[in-house]
Amino acid sequence: MTKVRLEFRNVAKRFPAQRKSGDIVTAVEHLDFALAEGEVVSIIGPSGCGKSTLLNMGSGLDPASSGEVFVDGEKVVKPNEHVAFMLQKDLLLPWRTIRENVEIGLEIRGVSAREREPISLSLLKRCRLGDFVNHYPHQLSGGMRQRAALARTLAVDPAVLLLDEPFSALDAQTKMVLQQDLGQMLGETGKTALFVTHDLVEAIALSDRVLVMSQRPGRIVKEIVIDIPDRPNPMERRKSPKVGPYVADLMSLLHIDEAVV
């Protein structure tokens, strides 16, 4: 049996609607799912359904109100070294070179400069940034910066990657190239990833499974297994004739066509 890397057990997140009124808003509830080793799972849902809340609980930055989150069999109570996240914003520090930015996680964890360097250099090479290691973020394009952010996320060698709409700020073509980079990297390293996105085709092209969430309070209403071969190659997967029916499925589950009327 393959090892479970990330598991949500009946997780809910509630918070007070406003400071004074005692109302409680439930952001997400009944989250019950698991990611096996090497699996890439996307979460898709309407805006405000709590997708980011879900990732925050997975990273340990935000505690669950009830239920439990496990990473590598360990209960998540605070940020831990098994998980790393990546956001829509690259969050590169402008005063650090690309290499120094990639190394920041290792630096915080006390890894010596001598040990950091080979890790960051080989990752930057694989992210096709080998010629830009000593550049500063503002000298790079948006797509290159997001690739550097991916390298930073992978540098700490996490068991699970949490990706929160990492490509949504990029133009359509750059986005496809980065999806390909991510797909390949995930395939090569065998990393497990939970991927939040708004982009239906992106979810289908990159993942083994897609979880569909409902309106707030967000629950998982449907799991769709993506039966297209060659997951590390999203560029090819996009062209598959099966993509259309999956998109249609997701559209009806999310009630997208009804919103038009």
């Binding site: 990273s59 340990g60 930055l61 940020p79 831990n80 070294e81 998980v83 790393a84 996240f85 956001l87 914003k89 969050l91 520090l93 920041i104 996680g105 915080i108 964890r109 700490v156």
Partner: peptide, 14 residues
């Protein structure tokens, strides 16, 4: 300072 940058650092256990 963007609070997400601080969150990122904290996610690395800073």
């Amino acid at each position: 300072i963007d609070p997400d940058i601080v969150r990122l650092a904290k996610s690395f256990n800073a």
